[in-house]
Design a protein around this nucleic acid. Structure first.
Lengths: 176, 176
DNA sequence: CTGTGACCTGTCAGCAGTGGAAGGTAGGGT
DNA sequence: ACCCTACCTTCCACTGCTGACAGGTCACAG
């Protein structure tokens, strides 16, 4: 139920339409909290009903510019100071597969893990490029906080790559 | 939709009741693919309907011992050889919060991240204890594959701890 | 002035997952 | 003989999320 807070957060220092927010999700928040179109529009109307947002202006083609209200700011602040609890129990179909990996031949198992190595490496490259592309200046929110999150992604993919490589070598230890 | 495959996997070399499977989820698979009671029982009947499982025996108090069928084995194997696709876009309310961390005071932000450091450290300790408790022998599935997954958890929590520590120091750089 | 594509919003069916209620049986301890 | 606990299953209401469909308007190019 954090979609609402993501939206509130994006509207703190700017007003935007559902369409714009959608784009923002695709770019900045995609790796942290993806959301579909239906979800965003639905949540926006709900937030407006609850008084956490208000329609600041009506644009050209039915466009609605949403702005955060005082109540919305309060709610956001309150959420930020709340304990996230155990970060949603991570469900990973990849790790689930690893759990049953001995049902395959060692060759197949190694192939699977090496595939994961490559996947992680690709992800890592993508993030590196992203970092280099917008590093300097650009005060558009991605400065302070965005960099922290980006760094997390980098470290995560690095760790995954190393782990998968290690795991692959565990399977067929002494291949002379 | 991988719950079915988790169940099939658990039934590969043993037969079990829904109740037992539930316990297995709580212990071994909890960190990789948690499941609730309603889900397990529901999926089991569905799997039996589809012929991937069969009721091998009826126990004392309505207990049903499920066994995997040939069709079930085939399905499981097929799934294992399938590309997992991009591992479910990870939704993290913690990272979402980090994204909006500059709405708090630097002190509050640092406190938040330091809390994450501690959380990760706790998790790490828990996993370490788990590893030490069942390392030797014990061929109960946790030998080969389980160790790989456990190692993933250890590396993940280590990474999270280091990252949160680093991030906390990013916020108030020169505290003389 | 026509079409193509970007902009912009809304709704609905369906599924996976959560949480909890309800109901019942067997076995062990006192 | 009794109760308590562990065992064991089924059902349901609710939420978050997905994917797709449906509908409309502005802007610009040819």
């Amino acid at each position: 139920m954090s979609l609402r807070h993501a939206l509130l957060g994006l509207l703190v220092d700017r007003t935007a339409s559902g369409y714009e927010l959608l784009k923002l999700f695709e770019t900045s928040l995609a790796n942290v909290w993806p959301a579909t179109q239906s979800q965003v529009y639905g949540e926006l109307t709900r937030l407006a009903d609850n008084g956490l947002l208000e329609v600041a202006a009506q644009g050209p083609r039915g466009r609605k510019d949403y702005a955060i209200t005082e109540a919305g700011r309060a709610e956001l602040l309150h959420w930020l100071l709340t304990d996230p609890g155990p970060d949603s129990p991570r469900r990973s179909s990849t790790l689930l597969r690893v759990f049953f990996l001995d049902l395959l031949t060692p060759e197949q198992g190694r192939a699977f893990l090496e595939h994961q190595v490559r996947r992680a490496a690709t992800q890592r490259d993508k993030l590196k490029k992203l970092r280099n592309s917008l590093d300097w200046r650009e005060s558009g929110m991605l400065t302070a906080n965005g960099r922290l999150v980006l760094e997390y992604g980098l470290r995560l993919s690095a760790m995954q790559q190393e782990w998968a490589d290690w795991a692959a070598r565990q399977i067929t230890p002494g291949t002379t």
